[in-house]
Amino acid sequence: MAMSKRKRAEYIRYAQYGLLVVIAALVAFLADWGQIKGAFFNTEIAASMFPSVITVALKNTIIYTALGFAFGLALGLVLALMKLSSVAPYRWIATVYIEFFRGVPALLVFIGIYYGVPIAFQMQFPPLTTVMLALGGVGAAYMAETIRAGIQAVPKGQVEAARSLGMSQGRAMITIVIPQAFRIILPPLTNELILLTKDSSLIYILGLFREQYELTKFGRETLSRSPSLTPILIAGLCYLIITLPLGYLSRYLERRGTSGKKKVSA
């Protein structure tokens, strides 16, 4: 008599648990805990990073990300509207932009703007402008598609109602459609913000002063002066200080968005 289906599923689950335990034991046995402690948990080095890891590095990461996100959101909205435009050349330009900047690594965009622009235009952007253009330029490509999807997700009846009240196409877009679209896309936009937070580390290719360091650059710089990987761990934890709340925010907005009972003053 063969095993019942339920019994078999139970045994397979036990086997999976067992395998996990074996892997964990192997890792624990093979790892050199003393080395790991020295490499990642050097409290002296960790302590030496404070307070500037917060007051300089974390602060700069937030500033760079905010600038990039703000520029990216504005450009992304323009691109989304271009993509939905009835004017064909606008659609082509937007499509080419989005496909290009979504397709190349953000690092190349940083390099292009930092080294390419001075050669091509005989001008040099300050780091803050560079990071805003590069981060925002890449973010815009992703956000444009998100915003376009959000605009298209607003029911057609909303535009018809607005037009029937005498609003022009543009007025209906600004007053009725875009506010509703952003409500729909808040969760994915929060994810974009998380991605941009991490991409802001690419600023390391720019020649920066100490007070301009963000988390990754700060961590690497500390690393070069210390025989321990602790700075990387600290920098990593600092990223989590930003991204974990954003992740919670995103999930919260998603839940709130589906409940449909939002109190908003107008």
Partner: peptide, 17 residues
């Protein structure tokens, strides 16, 4: 259109206001 009011089957109230 400001002089022509319209009422729709699906109401179409602006859901964010």
């Amino acid at each position: 259109r400001t002089k022509i009011g319209m009422v729709f089957q699906g109401f179409n109230l602006f859901s964010h206001l």
